[in-house]
Design a protein around this nucleic acid. Structure first.
Lengths: 339, 339
DNA sequence: GGCTGGCACTCGCACGGACCGAGTGCCAAT
DNA sequence: ATTGGCACTCGGTCCGTGCGAGTGCCAGCC
């Protein structure tokens, strides 16, 4: 029916207007600003249906309509076209990200860039260790029995871990240890590192066995766990721009500091490289009930390294933000592939 | 005169009451809550004098008095006793910081701890590189002409830097380079590293000279600059707790993300180890006009490594926060000395 | 049957006046 | 110098009112 089609146009118009003005939008304003070819009265009928179906709602009786989470969902899924970035924006991304000197710098720039492009809070996950491979291991003796183990991955990430050994070790022991570890682990995917530990310990000369076991264990522990817990957040000042009530941003700020919660959201990315949008209640976290998360995985080639995205109010420019997130992720993926 | 003495008592009482209630404090309430031994009328006279001297002010005619920056300053300098931490708090600090596995972890815990103890925004500067010494240098080849240089300091900090070489290098070259760099720089204070570069380049075999020069230059650059620009921030959610107007926290959040500004404040610490308090306008940064910064240097022994502190509204519990900042700094100093 | 113009109705909100009470400054008394 | 008394100021709150945006419904029209 032609009616359904027009109702969707009405919904799209409501979302667009509400996003840009932040005012509940009424039938008259809609008829004026969009040429839907029908009168306000007709639009009212459509709106009544849309409301009954749960796509829009009115904050109070004598106000206009506001999209619900469900309404935004339909908009994102079926009503919005990908908004390509302008040439200037592409240029800005390139200019901004080139010239980074190391991984930390790349990600730092990424998060600032994303925050600026979208005017939202930006979040970038450090490349997940378990999907990278070992480039090099370094062992440094701090004191007699304390060793610092440094792991360098092929994504340019550097992890460190202090290991307390049961006994004092000599300088030669350290050199041996370094050689053995590198022989065993270099080139291995971190995810497989755990399974190699028994081998390494077995082939070690007896007097080093305890040492190798301790260090390997610490290494595996480092790889598996904190690899997940590093997150860069930027643009929190953008939160203060939209909110009227400071109490409402507190839970959000807390969630962002908590990291765990956000990390879960960001790291659950689609393997196909599609941009994922979670709207309001879909997040299933109390603190994020009024917020939407737009995220995507980044990586080089077919290897996913991590996720990045933005967090903002459900009332956001989805097409624009999705485009920005996707573009930045692509560029970061290329950049990391090149290093 | 006895008057002066009592007037100071009145000021102290005003600060204390205002900090705990957030309401402008009037003469009657003051007389009730503190036994100053005089009547409200007398207190009013004292308040009039204090106001004339610029220590307090009234937001509007029929309201109580509020301390000015100058009033807080006097309070901090002359009217407040250091408030020792409770045994439980000391215990909590210990429990919280022990068990950290690396530098990043130590500082991460520190910032969370400080934010929790003070209910303010906490800030911790990474140990300044130039005051540390080189423990070890590692060179890893990423591609034919790209090298990753990793620097490990005796404070447990790990710095990395990617260097693009003018020409391809061989595996042997990398090994030579590593040996030479370590021979030259290990044990050197980073601040002195720059002056050693010419020596190193001179003693290098001719075919490696360009390479050594490039890497050394990158190294020195890494040491001098980004050593200053790393900052950990935590507890921003505490900001939302106090503010009524979200517009007022925006500049603060921006300043915190900017890092540079806050870093300046935090790193300008007293060499004697005293806690530094900057109140409101004393900060000389627009965004921090309504905020106070409590900071102190931390370090092991006589070596200052960096600064840490808190940022909060001028209306804060100075004695408590100063005590917390000092205690945490001491403990972190000890912890880093031990590693 | 669907669209449209008209119309009565509902509310949220902004505005303005009245009231209240906390707090002050001054003054005369001690 | 301190104190009790007192008139005064003024911000905050509480209502009552009017306004306007927006709606739902209905009868008429294409």
């Amino acid at each position: 029916m032609a009616h359904d089609e027009r109702r969707l146009q009405v919904l799209r118009a409501i979302v667009q207007d509400f996003v840009s003005t932040n005012d509940p939008v009424g039938s008259k304003a809609l008829a004026e600003r969009h040429d839907l070819g029908v009168s306000p009265a007709t639009i009212r009928n459509d709106m009544a249906v849309l409301e009954e179906q749960g796509y829009i709602t009115q904050p109070h009786t004598s106000a206009g309509r506001v999209p619900t989470d469900k309404g935004y969902r339909l908009f994102v899924d079926r009503l919005s076209a990908v908004k390509p970035l302008s040439a200037a924006e592409r240029k800005a991304i390139e200019r901004f990200l080139d010239g980074a000197v190391d991984l930390h710098d790349v990600l730092g720039r990424t998060v600032r860039l994303l925050a600026q492009l979208t005017s939202q809070v930006a979040v970038v996950q450090y490349p997940t260790l378990s999907r990278s491979a070992v480039r090099h291991l370094e062992v440094v003796q701090l004191t007699g029995s304390r060793l610092l183990v440094v792991l360098i991955t092929d994504t340019g990430r550097v992890e460190q871990r202090i290991v307390d050994c049961p006994v004092d070790v000599t300088r030669d022991d350290v050199a041996d240890l370094r050689a053995m570890l590198n022989a065993a682990f270099t080139g291995a995917k971190l995810a497989d590192a755990g399974s190699k530990v028994p081998d390494v310990v077995d082939t070690a000369p007896p007097h080093l066995r305890a040492l190798v076991a301790a260090v390997s264990a610490a290494l595996v522990e480092t790889l598996v766990e904190p690899g997940e817990d590093r997150l860069l957040v930027g643009g929190t000042a953008n939160l203060a721009r939209v909110a009227v009530d400071p109490g409402s941003l507190r839970p959000l700020l807390e969630a962002l500091e908590e990291q765990v919660v956000v990390l879960k959201l960001i790291s659950e990315v689609d393997s196909g490289g599609a941009v994922l949008v979670r709207i309001g209640e879909e997040n299933a976290y109390e603190a994020l009930a009024g917020a939407s998360v737009v995220s995507v995985g980044y990586g080089s080639g077919d290897r996913a390294l991590g996720g990045l995205g933005i967090v903002g109010p459900t009332r956001m420019d989805y097409p624009g933000n999705m485009a920005a997130v996707r573009a930045v992720a692509r560029y970061v993926g290329q950049l990391l592939a090149g290093s």
